[in-house]
Design a protein around this nucleic acid. Sequence first.
DNA 1: CGTATAGTTGATTAGTATCAACGCTAGTGG
DNA 2: CCACTAGCGTTGATACTAATCAACTATACG
Lengths: 253, 253
Amino acid sequence: MLAHPFDTDDARPAERDGFDLNAPPCRNCDVVREIAFCGELTYDEIRRLASARCHVHLPADVTLFREGDAADHVYSIASGTLKLYKLMSDGRRQIVGFLFSGDMFGLAVDGGYAYTAETVTPAQICRFTHRKLDTLRGEIPRLERKMFAMAVRDLAAAQEQMLLLGRKTAKERVASFLLKLSCRLELRGQPSSPVELPMSRADIADYLGLTIETVSRTFTHLKREGVIGLPTADHALLVDTRVLKDISEGTGR
Amino acid sequence: MLAHPFDTDDARPAERDGFDLNAPPCRNCDVVREIAFCGELTYDEIRRLASARCHVHLPADVTLFREGDAADHVYSIASGTLKLYKLMSDGRRQIVGFLFSGDMFGLAVDGGYAYTAETVTPAQICRFTHRKLDTLRGEIPRLERKMFAMAVRDLAAAQEQMLLLGRKTAKERVASFLLKLSCRLELRGQPSSPVELPMSRADIADYLGLTIETVSRTFTHLKREGVIGLPTADHALLVDTRVLKDISEGTGR
DNA sequence: CGTATAGTTGATTAGTATCAACGCTAGTGG
DNA sequence: CCACTAGCGTTGATACTAATCAACTATACG
């Protein structure tokens, strides 16, 4: 396992990677504002948060921590895509979530992470020690609320995924997956249609509870039906969102 | 839908169903202590909580709210079993959780419940308005922390269930299910073996992403193999927990 | 340009769903 | 008190979706 360069949490938190984290209404705070916890916080609060964090840029396919590791840190994504997954002893894998900029992860119950976290693309990551973040949460009620809201949102998303995994067909799963990615773009004010698929077919399969082959075949079927387009393997065009939505809900073909 | 008798949240919260909620170190506060939020709170804090709640006893098969309903309340279970589920338009159902005494539910993101909640057995339920609970959370940091911890715990459980639904075989699912119920008993200091199954086979099937028939057959197989016993349809005896655990993890038969 | 990896497509198999019948238990009414 | 009925659970036969096994193609990399 690659030793990742986070080892400076307490050493020099204020200046790192060219970011001066202490100058309030500047480029740097805008960057911090991007990160998960900071929605609706004041600049002063963000500054306190920023001084507790550790920022790093990682290449693709880096493991941040493994399921069962002592949960020392909470993470936040500034840019890039990550995956969280659980493994069975025989190698079966379930990806419990793909994460993007603004997402938070690393919360743990009994001191151990419940999943492995790995970068899918190069990514800029912030990291806070649980200890420091706990203190800050106590001092900044809005931060506490924000983190709670994020946990509740994650829970609702997980429940939606349980419906997908337990009750949907392969076609419905793939359609739901594409729509979810598209929705996320729309929420961020970006065009909803050419959806980037930075993850491999294997990752998609392990996220949807399918095999690589079934994912590939289903993409092809949807393409043949004219519902989607696949200009490249890692870009999907949502040609008919309406129909795709019907398919994802079991109403359509 | 049955109109459930909760309509007194603001009317007379202090005295209801024979419970005097204002006398601190008495039977009633012990009852309240049972409920979800109250772990690690002082009697004073519990009293403030209790004065905001509304308590009721419900029969089996009562719907408390439906997916999409305006999320007005947060609920806590004092006794009994409930199920939370999501429905698709064609009737396919995924139960996202069975809940027992001490569990909390009804947290919502965008003002709407993400699932339907229904009693499986007769149950004693507490209810708080989101409005009041939000205020109390602000006033009682420990409450805020407790609810956050519960949300994180629920999230980890949901992720574990995603692994089950996405990657486990029918046998592994049923074994995991029985072990989970058994573990819960053990954590509460009760004998881990005769596990009560208050829910129907249909409920178990919709929880495990299987059909009634597959659940039934799998119970029979495990019984034939001598791993479990089924004295009645709604009681399971865990004969060989070790083997059951191996099965649930894909290590065993 | 050759090789390795990811993705696609095809043939077959396996696990679970579906369809169907039967048995058991509990509640009901004579 | 006992027969009747309804609903739940079990068991069996068959069908079907997605997994597995296998081959091939396209893309990226040295």
